[in-house]
Nucleic acid binder design. Structure first.
Lengths: 136, 136
DNA sequence: GTTTTAAATGCAACGAGGTTGCAAATGTAA
DNA sequence: TTACATTTGCAACCTCGTTGCATTTAAAAC
């Protein structure tokens, strides 16, 4: 995986601690995180505005990918262009509230009726993950 | 398709003009609508609160289904239990900003790694619909 | 290392979107 | 028609995200 500073440099973005912190936090987590989860894990305290702007910048440059499970549940992961992964489904666990990439569930271009063209397909699978399987 | 009043009765919900109006509006439109689109089409003017509560009630009772394209784009359609349709993908047109059901694109239960179980899968296809195909 | 400059930050203020409590109005069953 | 639980509309409130602006900072030029 690329270094955060290198990612920012390639997109001609300044290397700021907020941006780097967001990228590092997502990398370390290994799963998609919500904005609040990222803020909690970041040491430094940033203004809400700074956070939103950093998110927007990273998202606009397709460094992070927004996964909208529900309008209340929005998670961020590194974009496929950074991770070099293929297009895949995302799994949302309704028990532990986590989102993870399902690389074994590829997403292919759908067969659409005449006249329709697609640029992107999002697949969200909701259920219970392997860690939450045997509830008491 | 069932009558709105019958739908409400079956769910033991009172038949109010706001609830009936929402259901009728979605039925007539033939495609998923946003809250604002529904409000505009409804004749009577309801308080914001009433609207939100009616939505929540209908959604809780699985009469309407929420399609979250993005956190900014949320549309509502009648649930499959009302329309008797099978599970299918939804198509979002990035040009005309509409959402329609893709009944020719069925959604089947995905093959997941050991230990994972799914209860629901959402497929959102983003692209350009048949009416927006030849832009000038 | 110093200077310079465009970009990013933090703060205050604002607006949209959604929720809660409560009194008044309404649907429905007796 | 009556009675009662539910729904409605209003006011107040909170959270979330944005904007303008002065200050600070990253990084390129010297």
């Amino acid at each position: 995986m690329m270094e955060p500073s290198q990612i920012l440099h390639e997109h001609q973005l300044k290397r700021t601690s907020c941006r780097e912190g967001i990228i590092v936090t997502i990398m370390d987590a290994g799963m998609a995180l919500s904005e609040n989860e990222i803020r909690e894990k970041l040491e430094g305290n940033y203004d809400r505005t700074t956070f939103y702007r950093a998110f927007k910048t990273l998202h606009d440059h397709q460094i992070i990918h927004k996964i909208v499970v529900d309008n209340q549940i929005i998670k961020y992961a590194l974009d496929n262009s950074v991770t070099k992964k293929n297009s895949h489904a995302h799994f949302y666990c309704q028990d532990c509230n986590t989102v993870q990439c399902m690389e074994t569930v590829p997403v292919s271009k759908p067969q659409l009726p005449d006249g329709f063209t697609s640029s992107e397909t999002e697949v969200i699978i909701k259920g219970r993950c392997n860690h939450c399987q045997n509830p008491e």
